[in-house]
């Protein structure tokens, strides 16, 4: 049995609105061990909200409710905001979708990484600088000294995303939540970033939650996949068996992809069944 890092039970995310309460995530349960867990779904299916809710990043008026979100047996929901700050970054890190919006445009890359590192440890500036250089090398950035002096606008998208990953990994977190980390990137660069994440996850024995809308990517990259629809998990399967998934929603998504090796005149269009959103959430617990 794999050790469980994170245990989420019956998670709800609600947003009160003029037309009543909108449930973005509806009773989702899953566990995460030292593995790569993929969460896939369309936009609006609640996959990003699930990632954010774990770190308690959802602001009022949004409401997060759950029976528990246990990080190694400690319920994150019982922590105060101050205690949460020790969790964020240090124990659970998050890489967001677009590096353009997550790096500070008026600070050099070096200053940002050093700041992030020193916030979590008592290291001196010189130590932090050395550590930052090492991290940039670990995410295969060439000429890290130059990059440390550079500003974010001088970086390409792929480099920016690798810098984000470096920054997130310096405190050596146990869990990394990656929210569409590669969807702003090219196919060729995508592979590179994924390989780096994969290596780091394996070497450090981290748990990875990989949020994406790209089914093929997730099937390739992850160990286990949760498929979300309208705020619920509709199917859980092993990544290598994703192409043999049973739920009509997953099948529909897979069939709507154009394929090079199997040309068709028309693509299949997803026929949505209201019953999918009614059916109770499937548990993603091991």
């Amino acid at each position: 049995m794999m050790s469980v890092l994170l245990d989420v039970e019956n998670l709800w995310v609600k947003f009160p609105s003029r037309h009543g309460v909108f449930d973005a995530v509806r009773g989702v349960s899953f566990t995460l061990g030292r593995e790569r867990l993929g969460i896939v779904g369309e936009s609006g299916s609640g996959k990003s909200m699930t990632g954010r809710a774990i770190l308690r990043l959802i602001r009022p008026p949004g409401i997060v409710e759950a029976d528990h979100i246990n990080l190694e047996g400690v319920n994150l929901l019982d922590k105060t905001e101050k205690e949460m700050r020790d969790v964020r970054g240090q124990r659970i890190s998050m890489v967001m979708q677009d590096p353009k919006f997550s790096l500070n445009p008026v600070m050099t890359i070096g200053d940002q990484i050093i700041e992030a590192y020193r916030l979590h440890s008592k290291a001196s500036k010189a130590e932090a600088y050395k550590k930052s250089l090492e991290m940039l090398e670990a995410v295969s950035i060439r000429d890290p000294e130059r990059v440390m002096r550079a500003y974010p606008h001088e970086m390409s998208g792929g480099m920016g995303q690798r810098i984000m990953i470096a920054m997130m990994l310096i405190p050596n977190p146990q869990i990394l939540i990656a929210d569409e980390p590669t969807s702003a990137l090219d196919v060729s660069v995508q592979r590179q970033v994924l390989d780096i994440m994969d290596k780091l996850v394996k070497d450090r024995g981290m748990g990875l939650i990989f949020i994406s809308h790209d089914l093929n990517l997730v099937a390739d990259f992850c160990d286990r996949v949760l498929i979300m629809y309208a705020g619920r998990i509709v199917e859980v399967c092993d990544a290598e068996k994703l192409h043999a998934a049973k739920h009509p929603y997953t099948r529909g998504l897979l069939n709507s992809l154009p394929r090079l090796d199997a040309p068709r005149d028309r693509l299949e269009v997803l026929q949505r069944d209201p019953a999918w959103s009614e059916a109770p959430s499937v548990s993603g617990r091991v």
Partner: peptide, 30 residues
């Protein structure tokens, strides 16, 4: 992807209906 399929089908239909010529840019080979 589900919406992509709808739009691609629509574009294919419109091309035959209106006898259009397309030049399409994409990073997605499939």
């Amino acid at each position: 992807v589900s919406v992509q399929a709808e739009i691609l089908n629509l574009l294919a239909d419109l091309r035959t209906e209106h006898n259009l010529t397309y030049v399409m840019v994409s990073h997605d080979l499939s």
